[in-house]
């Protein structure tokens, strides 16, 4: 049997006296779509940072297709096919939308192919009309799309999305749901999101983080009806 796409064993991260993530065992199959939920400070973003090499775990291991990447640098992990859309859009603010996508596409493509990848991505994320705009001057929602486009332009096999729907209008959220489904046809995804309706629309399986550890892992509907989860996290949101 081949190794899973991503596997963590006993993964932990300690910042001084604070144990931000503890003993996380997590497995993601090829082309799987998984949602991560949990209250603020549950360790979701720290977990993402360990998957992408931005933080090196203080205990445990991260493996990508059986290869230990716990100590790898972010650019090395990116080159293995992991892309991340961060919580606060991280883009090249001083460059145009097209230049942003070009930088990403040029990492994995050469010559005329770069331009065709960029053109296709501009259409896919609906940014063709603002292709020549400086990204720093765009609205927050549009910058989210730019970042999505940038991440997808490198054609990663695993896409990590940290709160992709944050700050988006209802229409943009609906388009994000569509896009996530589209991406999932060929790639695996892990999505951190607070918007339960969003998760309901996209997810089959949900992992709940609480106080740095995995609380429970189950299908989205089972999670929504799990009393422990309701207590620690969902509370009024489900009732509403």
């Amino acid at each position: 049997m081949s190794a899973p796409l991503i596997e963590t064993r006993g993964l932990g991260m300690r910042f001084g006296g604070v144990q931000a993530v503890r003993d996380v065992d997590f497995v993601l199959a090829e082309r799987e779509l998984r949602c991560l939920i949990g209250p603020n400070g549950a360790g979701k973003s720290t977990f993402f940072k360990m998957l992408t090499g931005q933080l090196h775990p203080t205990s445990g291991t991260v493996s990508l297709r059986g290869r230990d990447i716990s100590r790898a640098e972010p650019h090395e992990i990116a080159r293995l096919g992991v892309g991340i859309k961060t919580q606060v859009p991280s883009v090249f603010d001083g460059l145009t939308v097209r230049e942003n996508l070009w930088i990403a596409a040029a990492r994995t493509n050469r010559g005329a192919r770069i331009r065709s990848v960029v053109d296709a991505m501009l259409e896919q994320v609906g940014l063709a009309p603002v292709a020549s705009a400086i990204v720093g001057q765009l609205a927050h929602g549009q910058r989210q799309w730019v970042e999505l486009g940038v991440v997808l332009s490198t054609d990663p096999e695993l896409v990590l999305l940290d709160e992709p729907a944050a700050g988006m209008t209802d229409r943009e959220v609906a388009r994000t749901v569509e896009l996530v489904r589209e991406i999932n046809k060929t790639k695996a995804l892990i999505v951190v999101e607070h918007d339960i309706q969003f998760i309901r629309k996209i997810a089959s399986k949900v992992t709940v983080f609480n106080q740095g550890a995995v609380l429970v892992e189950d299908d989205v509907e089972a999670i929504l009806h799990n009393p422990t989860v309701r207590d620690v996290y969902l509370g009024k949101k489900v009732a509403a």
């Binding site: 992408t52 640098e73 650019h75 990116a78 883009v91």
Partner: peptide, 24 residues
């Protein structure tokens, strides 16, 4: 050139460039 565009991208946002697979 590609090199020139990448160094400008790194100036703009080093973390992002690295997460795309460039070694700053």
């Amino acid at each position: 050139s590609r090199f020139g565009r990448v160094i400008v991208a790194i100036r703009e946002n080093e973390g992002r460039a690295q997460l795309l697979g460039y070694d700053p």
